[in-house]
Amino acid sequence: MNETKKLVEIGNIVSNWELSADVNALVLECPDIVSVAKPGQFVMIKNEMGSTYLRRPFGVADVDKEQGLLLLIYRKAGKGTQELAQLDDGAPISVEGPLGNGFSFKNEGRTLLIGGGVGIAPIIYTARHLSKELDGPKPVILLGVRNHKELFWSDFVENFAEKLVYTTDDGSYGRKGFAIDAIPDILKEYPDIKHIKVCGSTVMMKGIAELAIKQGIECEVSLEKRMACGFGVCLGCTFEGKSGKRWKVCGDGPVFDAEEVFG
């Protein structure tokens, strides 16, 4: 369980820039949350000057603990994120976190990290943690994106990757198809892979989870569900696991053992 105290901190925007036509990166200065945030955790943010009411969950994309900086990467999908994209440096954002439990890490074997769409964001911090902070074998990173215009992710992860593989929906870069299609070759090339961690769409995670379970590879999935609070009181994000136990994506997750969700 997350035993770190949850905080609300006003984080000033350090930079907010466009990565592609519909994806932005946002760096906020919020040293207290950053000092305790772990890979796979999330924050709930609110632009107090904006017109939306509820906070929105964003996975922690990366942290700079020395400078107290938090990186978030978001798709400009709705009114709130479109307003967020308009904000200038210095604008205050209310950040609540760190929330939920991150990925688990074991000191054995190599990890295959898989991300799809903006679900790639938490893969960045996870990859840095594995390769730099834990000093274990560098992870293999597999990213599923729409097309060659979404290769900006390389700048964030290539230093932490043993190998970086892309699949694109249209075949405009890397292998054409879905991320799952690239997994057999990766497992053949890296038989030391003992763990898979995935963050992406439900369809993507379900397929990969089933593959991992069949192959006996430990697999964790990071779920996303609509939530109002982020800390276990609204019950917007609950689901029943395969064991029959009811879970809250926010407080018990967002990372779950793949068997409990898709097994």
Binding site: T52, R226, C234
Partner: peptide, 23 residues
């Protein structure tokens, strides 16, 4: 009670709708 299936929370102008269903 497990509550209702499907989407349970929606943002609305200056507020929200919920249909948790007494989980």
């Amino acid at each position: 009670r497990a509550g209702n299936e499907g989407v349970r929370i929606a943002e609305t102008p200056s507020g929200m709708l919920n249909c948790i269903g007494l989980e």
